[in-house]
Simulated scan of single mutants.
Amino acid sequence: MTDNALSLFQLCDSNFPTGSFSHSFGLETYIQNDIVHNQETFSEWLKVYLHEQLAYADGLAARLIYQALEENDTEKIWELDRILTVQNLARESRDGTQRIGDRFLNISESIYEIPMLTNYRNQLRKKFAFGHPAIVFTMVGHHLQVPKETTILFYLYSTIASLVQNAVRAIPLGQTAGQKVIYTFQKELRQATDKIMHLDESEFGVVSPGLELSQMQHERVNIRIFSS
């Protein structure tokens, strides 16, 4: 792994302070309904989340944004920022993603000197953009000259690692069980990355209705430890 790739991998730490530990993105609904209750059922949920929502939303967006950065097409980036936000139908998940994106941008700006991050911040201040962690992550990966496929793989890993840590607290799982899930997901992550590299742009936003419904229903769960 190159030094630049290692620098990008720093952003994958589940303890990276973006506030993602406060969001389950619908997982807590499945836990409340006793559909997810152990390592096996969580792994099943996580596979669906990875392949049926994350790949078609954040993952495909990361690929398209990386391409737009290569072509210096900033208008395409702002367009993708808007689509990523408005197609996220669950209010809690939409708001949570924006908060994570804003925090991710703040921290990344403090670590790296990247003009595109400053440009993105200006768009947010003018209310011309919403903010999304996949966009910030991809901007950093492109600046560091980390290959597109590796950037996507690292972003998927960072999201999965964060959700595993949240599941460790919420189900609860043991820390060892959580690490086993992350280990077994290495193949899943590579498969998802390969799929993203071959998706057509017209497939952007084709996500599982069940996941979207669980994210909407989270507002009304009886007991909650997550914001979404």
Rank of each mutant, 00 (worst) to 15 (best):
Y30Q: 08
Y30N: 02
Q32I: 04
Q32N: 09
V36G: 01
H37Y: 09
N38C: 09
N38E: 07
F42L: 12
S43C: 12
W45Y: 15
L46Q: 10
K47T: 14
K47C: 12
V48T: 14
Y49T: 13
Y49G: 04
L50G: 09
H51L: 11
H51A: 10
Q53N: 05
L54R: 02
Y56W: 08
Y56V: 06
D58A: 14
L60D: 00
L60G: 01
A61W: 00
A62I: 02
A62M: 04
R63A: 02
R63I: 04
R63T: 02
E71Y: 12
N72D: 11
N72R: 10
D73C: 06
T74V: 14
T74C: 08
E75T: 15
E75V: 10
E79I: 06
L80Y: 03
D81E: 05
T85F: 05
V86W: 08
V86F: 10
V86S: 08
L89M: 10
R91K: 12
E92L: 05
S93D: 07
R94H: 06
D95R: 11
D95G: 08
G96F: 01
G96H: 02
Q98F: 06
R99T: 13
R99K: 15
R99P: 01
D102E: 14
F104W: 04
L105Q: 03
E109I: 15
I111E: 00
Y112A: 06
I114T: 12
M116A: 15
L117V: 14
Y120T: 05
R121M: 09
R121H: 13
N122Q: 14
R125Q: 07
K126E: 07
A129C: 04
F130L: 10
G131A: 03
G131M: 03
